[in-house]
Write a protein that binds this DNA or RNA. Sequence first.
DNA 1: CGACATGTTGAACCTCATCAACCGACGTGG
DNA 2: CCACGTCGGTTGATGAGGTTCAACATGTCG
Lengths: 250, 250
Amino acid sequence: MHALTKLDNPGRKCDQCLVRHRALCRVAGTDALAELNRIARTRTFSAGSTIIASEDSMPFVGNVLSGVVKLTKVMADGRQQIVGLLFASDFVGRAFEDHWSYSAEAATDVEMCTFDRTAFERMLGKHPELEHQLLVSTLDELDAARDWMLLLGCKSAEEKVASFLMFVARRAANGGGCGEALPEAGAFEMPVSRTDMAAYLGTTVETVSRQITRLKTANIIRLTDMHHFIVPDIHRLAVAAGVDEVTLED
Amino acid sequence: MHALTKLDNPGRKCDQCLVRHRALCRVAGTDALAELNRIARTRTFSAGSTIIASEDSMPFVGNVLSGVVKLTKVMADGRQQIVGLLFASDFVGRAFEDHWSYSAEAATDVEMCTFDRTAFERMLGKHPELEHQLLVSTLDELDAARDWMLLLGCKSAEEKVASFLMFVARRAANGGGCGEALPEAGAFEMPVSRTDMAAYLGTTVETVSRQITRLKTANIIRLTDMHHFIVPDIHRLAVAAGVDEVTLED
DNA sequence: CGACATGTTGAACCTCATCAACCGACGTGG
DNA sequence: CCACGTCGGTTGATGAGGTTCAACATGTCG
């Protein structure tokens, strides 16, 4: 499965990096950056392949350069839940623990900038500003996870789907797409399948599909094709999502 | 609401601290400890009172010394979800952000060792070992949150309740109770109300109640009173909880 | 073209939320 | 002292929202 490639221009990789100014490494000083550069290695994974299995000893960690990574948990009987979707510039893996309880899979074709885990941990030890940044982004992830707990615990199917669309609209617009021009205000690409949506929302493919058509017939969204959504009025979608206030702009 | 008291023996508080060897401060060197001691202040909150409201600017952070703190999120229409339960030695609050999106409430009477937030942040900057430890425990919390996402997204009502009992059994036994002798193998106290259980499990009081009686009639649990549970065979409870393997011992 | 994956739609069933009544414990005030 | 309201918990009856199973549509790839 592990479809790997390596980019070997170790001298100046970071300069032209797509996520240079958004990922962890944005806080690295010039020397730290050079050091990161030395241990960095670009890997690519084709859609559907496993990046890190839950049994693996987690050989590496890294940042997503392009594509979408899903973190999943599965129960013994096969029921599974996606506990996180990671876009460009997001960090994958866990430092200071040699294996963890989810598995990371490529939801689309994925390109990552990876680091040997123990080497990366040594880096963190030497460069407090990096470790600090990792702490901050971990806190953000924790917030996001708890937001999702609210969704899973409280929201109706329609609210769930609407919330997910809001989530992707934001990530795909300012983050994941990364420079991808928006052809129309409120248009975005849905990078994952209906099945993945369902697994992330704690529901089934069928309900996701039904709710999408509901939103469609209510004229809250339109689809050009299966994976291209248009949201004419983000406010109406927010209402459908059951968002308290207009937390749209940050 | 804020029912406060202060213990003012700043000289040697930490020595006799209940959670000295389990909380963040366990990694503090003698000087860092002394400094922590200087900015520490014990506060108590009576059951039901708000510790930090979501609108507050989060004046302080701290460790739970005794009691149980719940982190809750509420939607505009009142639906609410508990996104975390914190026991003795757990850390409450968020550094590097002056307000956060949940509110912390005392589920029982609570005693906390608190620090002024900005002073605490300064401490973290000066003592990397503290910041490192905070990172590690944040990572653990993130794992816990994602475990709970699996529960909220996949599990049936019975599995939810059984899982919650397992959760409390473990925390109340090795952590929260802290020295409280277990009168019987597998006996523990339920520190929170049925309502809180429901809010944590993404269900209703009625279902919680029903599932408890189901577990009772199945002889998987017994109750001495409303808040004292006995689990004769933790394995059977684990099965009811839908736990993959025996992840009982860590 | 057929085979397969992905998504949509329909119909039946079932779990769980909802509404309501009830119970015991507790505290207050008459 | 008892009447009263309140609060936390349990139990019952009912129905809606979502799961499940199945058929169908669409798109893709050999």
